[in-house]
Amino acid sequence: MTESLQGARVVIGSIGDDIHVVGITILGHALRNAGAEVIQLGIQTPVEEFVATAVAEDADAVFVSSSNGHAAIFCDGVRGLMAAAGADDVLLYVGGNLANTAAADWSEVEARFLAMGFDRAYPSRTQPAQAISDLVADLAQRRSASNG
């Protein structure tokens, strides 16, 4: 089965002071290959730029990446700013290296990011196919909810 994100608009970038480029590059290509329209913001993207771009581009989802240990510093305000910009219905995914120590327990880290308002949070070794299949499911659920 080939999953399709045809028509979906996804904003992607590394947040705050993070310069990791490889993950977002690969994920951007994978999303594009799956049919999505990808708006690639690149590295060191301020929270405000994610929000402004999501609004301007009428995004369905925003993929936030943080791999330098500062995810907790920069990700906390994303959902609130999205809501303030009237874009509370945009799906928010976050991934990378979300903990700032290798000793952290993933279920606790995940809970912390879900509590910040992210719809999904991924541990460091997630393959693009996982996020794509989750996005297909989340968008389908939104459509059926709004139709029903």
Partner: peptide, 12 residues
């Protein structure tokens, strides 16, 4: 040896 997991601990 923790590089694949995240910011390494002192022990690793």
């Amino acid at each position: 040896i923790d590089e694949g997991i995240g910011v390494p601990t002192a022990e690793s």
